[in-house]
Amino acid sequence: MEVNCEGCAGCCLDWRRLLEDRTYDRARGSIRDGDGNRDPIDDDPNFVALTRETVRTYLDQGVADALTPRFWDARDEREGVEIDGRQVAAVAGRPVFFVGLRKPPKPVAPFGREEPSWLPACVFLDPTTLQCRVHGGALFPQECGAYPAHTLTLEATTECGRVEETFGGDRLLDVSVTKDLDGLVLGNAAIGEKLFCHPQPAALEGTIERLASGTTTAEDRAETIAVAAASSPGTVAISDHHYERARERALETVNGGSPGEDDRDSRRESWIGPAIAEWQQRRANADEPVPSPRVAADVEVARGAPETPGWDALDDE
């Protein structure tokens, strides 16, 4: 498998609003089976589902504010639980969800465009180079590293193919896929490993409504992150001890650590939350021109975000 990612990042951002036809395909994030689809409650077409171990790594590294949940609408009340006035897909009465990466608005100019546009983009995407800030590191999701191999294996349309069809160019250069695909977890094997089950639907009151409107709070995200981190593969059960510890850590990431903690263990505020807040504020100032992607140096890098090498540096390797 070989892909040409330079100037693209189509799988890292939501580029649908660049289209003249604004009819969005929510089914791209649906759960499909022989009886129909379960549409996601959020509107992210390129949601990357993280494993339990990756969620725990983010907690340990103090960057849990990069994470967000995904829930689905149930097909009917028989397979769902009612939360915030809607039927949410569930297993054994427990709402099921993924944990993935947040996509704040960023000024980007993908696909050879000369002028930047505000698009929802992965929290780790460098708007200037359109490269991943954590590529190859401990925070780089396994699913991202495998893309689009898993999609090709499932015989689904890749984002590379959509970009080629819409904007031209060659993105997917080699479609051969190895038979040994680490991280492709399907069916019951996904429960507790990538598909998590919340044990208390009542604790999600308000969260589902805010998820649908794109206004989740740090507390909303900490709740689901904690359940994911406390889950066990192959079961809907969670560890109460791990849940409490994970929730505390997730909130410490936002609040800058707990008073009295040893400095070695304190979870200080990461660059991610403040950067997202500034991107959102800049986007809210709709009367102002879209800034250059280079403003990311002030919004992200100045706060501690890793820099990216640029494509020329990679070509020289």
Rank of each mutant, 00 (worst) to 15 (best):
E288Y: 12
S270A: 13
A296S: 15
R294V: 09
D263P: 15
E269I: 06
W279V: 01
R264V: 04
P274M: 05
S292P: 04
W271S: 14
W271F: 14
P274V: 05
E261L: 10
D287H: 08
V299K: 00
R264M: 08
E300S: 06
N285C: 06
G273S: 13
Q281R: 13
D263A: 14
V290Q: 06
D265A: 07
S292T: 03
R267W: 10
V290S: 00
E269T: 07
R268M: 14
E288L: 13
E278P: 02
V290P: 01
R282H: 01
I272D: 00
Q281A: 08
Q281D: 08
D265N: 06
R268K: 15
R282I: 04
E269N: 02
P289C: 05
P291Q: 11
R283I: 07
R282G: 00
E300R: 05
E261P: 02
S292Y: 11
Q280C: 14
Q281K: 06
V299D: 04
V290G: 03
P291C: 12
A275L: 07
W279R: 06
N285T: 07
D265S: 07
I276P: 00
R283T: 07
R264I: 01
R267T: 12
P293R: 02
W279L: 05
E261Y: 10
E278A: 04
A297T: 06
S270I: 15
D287T: 12
P289D: 03
G273C: 12
R283V: 08
S270Y: 08
R264Q: 12
N285I: 02
G260N: 14
D262R: 14
E300I: 04
I276K: 02
D262F: 14
P293S: 09
R267F: 09
I272L: 02
A296H: 08
A296Q: 08
D263M: 13
I276A: 05
A286D: 12
P293A: 07
Q280T: 14
P274F: 01
A275D: 04
E288H: 13
R282V: 02
E261Q: 14
A286G: 08
D287K: 07
A286P: 10
V295I: 10
D263C: 11
P274L: 06
V290W: 05
I272A: 00
V290L: 05
G260L: 12
P291E: 14
W271K: 09
R282C: 04
G260R: 11
G273P: 08
E300N: 05
A284P: 04
A275Q: 05
E278S: 03
W271A: 09
R294G: 11
A297D: 09
P291V: 03
G260T: 12
S266I: 08
A296E: 07
E300Y: 08
A277P: 00
I272G: 00
P274H: 06
E269S: 06
V295L: 13
D262P: 13
P293F: 15
S270Q: 03
W279E: 03
R294Y: 11
D287M: 09
D287W: 04
R264C: 01
A286Q: 12
E300V: 06
A275K: 00
R283H: 11
V299M: 03
A286R: 12
V301C: 05
A297H: 07
Q280K: 10
D262E: 15
V299T: 09
G260D: 12
A284N: 05
